[in-house]
Design a protein around this nucleic acid. Sequence first.
DNA 1: CCCGGCACGGCATACGTATGAGCACACGGA
DNA 2: TCCGTGTGCTCATACGTATGCCGTGCCGGG
Lengths: 351, 351
Amino acid sequence: MARRRERAPRQADVARLAGVSQSAVSRVIASDAESARIPEETRRRILQAVKELGYVPNPSARSLRKKRNKLLGVHTFEPVFPHARESFYFEFLLGIEERAEELGYDLVLFTSTGTSDGRRRVYRDGVNRLNLADGSVLLGALTDKNDLARLWDEGYPFVHIGRREVPGAEIPCIVPDYFGVTGDIVEMLARHGHRHLTYLHGTLGMEAYEDRRRGYVDAVRKLGLEDRSSAGSALSEDKTSLLASWLDELAAGPVTAVVAESEPLAEMLLAGLDARELRVPDDVSVVVLEAVGPEARQRWHALHIPRKEIGRMAIDALVELVDDPEGQGASVVVPCSIVEGATVAAARERR
Amino acid sequence: MARRRERAPRQADVARLAGVSQSAVSRVIASDAESARIPEETRRRILQAVKELGYVPNPSARSLRKKRNKLLGVHTFEPVFPHARESFYFEFLLGIEERAEELGYDLVLFTSTGTSDGRRRVYRDGVNRLNLADGSVLLGALTDKNDLARLWDEGYPFVHIGRREVPGAEIPCIVPDYFGVTGDIVEMLARHGHRHLTYLHGTLGMEAYEDRRRGYVDAVRKLGLEDRSSAGSALSEDKTSLLASWLDELAAGPVTAVVAESEPLAEMLLAGLDARELRVPDDVSVVVLEAVGPEARQRWHALHIPRKEIGRMAIDALVELVDDPEGQGASVVVPCSIVEGATVAAARERR
DNA sequence: CCCGGCACGGCATACGTATGAGCACACGGA
DNA sequence: TCCGTGTGCTCATACGTATGCCGTGCCGGG
């Protein structure tokens, strides 16, 4: 049985079979209230022919003619799935998929733009694949500013998850309220009696963390607490000696609570404290600013980002942008909460 | 600063700026070795104009004209992400994304086709969205046979992950060798001295499990073992009384090894045995035929499906199908392995 | 001097759909 | 009779790109 692979039927074929013109077919297929102009009888004949031929609209032609595709893009600046399980992306995507489905949109995952270094650019040899979709959600820690600026210039409708500032452009972002919730965390620590805090950085200059850093600094100042963060508190995994001296300082000093930027950092901290006979939370309380999920070994007190909800909001904002070409697409700030774990206790006098 | 949102530049605009015709621009843009026809000087002028205007090809027009899109579809008959974490889909997608990226394809996630019952159909009001992509990978336990048959009739290029038989059609499938590996599992149990086995079913009639069931029956017969599966071994979560009597029978009988179709079933089994003072693996060995990941509470002996690899192979098969319209697209059988856990031990005489 | 051949690039058209403009006809009122 | 108002369609065209075909100009050989 050889497989049928003739040309797919077009509206013209349907029209011939039904004895009408192609435009009549188009009117019936893409009917709104417009259908008023086509009487029931003709309409039925056409639909009959459609069924008989197994006609199916050609989306390319359609979107060439109209300007809509019912397609939303998702561009991540790093591959999605490899990390999805433990990280970041997963819950966003969950919300994105859910909401897109509700609104009757399909999703394009832009995977073709990988470069050899494992990052992704929007523009590959100057070609922007994104405009295949009506609009796109962008996300990723390693957002490329040039890409963002260029997209903006082109007037392409997109939304970014997470705040990104580009001079001269007003990127519509869905931003978790890191600033606010980090302040809340500091305040919560203060309520537990902590007066001496320190902030544990990852790599400096990561825009994604700016709001959290500002929120911390701001709240500490406002509450009259004492921040013992030193330059040395900017740690990365390869600077073990630096880490050691920082830990020694911490062990010696009056600090009773640490705000750690990420879970890996908190793990390192925990191990280091352990080696110095200090217990969490009895001696030192710890809060994590980027917890990942319930799989963590430790039940951290942590900042909770409503990722799924953010994914949904991103789609809503994007669709609004797509539907209204005049709209400016303001940014949205989404409140975050603190998830209670087992790593914060009342401050205890040290030394 | 109002956002520029003029009409995107077309090849015609570029042409005007470069002082050539639209077709010359097209020739330069979509150049292969064809570029020999355009001398370096003109070529540079055109590319200069392209850059200046920020021209970007319109994918709809392109794919209307040619017949390719560089777009591959992924259709799951159930929503992907909600289950992805614990289940099934996740690793497939990982491979699919990886391979698509390597080959320079983008991925469309078909999410628009959801019906109210949470399942998904390819055809919604008779419209097949799939042909937006050059071809698609289909997957899902709840595959709709009608959809499959219709797609096949239309000559649409697609690949199914998992075996699906449709009379009159030769669906290209990427199928894990469930039959073979289930046989291997039975043989492994035999080597451990087990002579009396039983097979724990989920809902009957699920095509996805047919191969495993056949593999079990076949191997048991071939090795001269005794199968104590009864009709009662077809269990679902709501038939607790049935389950109880089945467990009693198991506890009483000579069976020393159970082959369980899924992890939830195995969990129920474990609990039931526990309540009857039977230990796994000391009294009863258990192997699971659909383990999910490393997150499981129990380290099951289990069937391992190389999901990521299968995802990759699906893309390869699909691309081949897309590239060669004449190709028949044969099915591929992928060998599976047994992952060693802590739930199989040597048989011990019972009763 | 003429002609063949080649390099360069324009012309025209096709892909399939959507839609404004307009045509033919019917009907009703003046 | 004539005009105005609908109804039920068709006609023609635009969307942006790719590509077969052909014209033009140049060069080299005979």
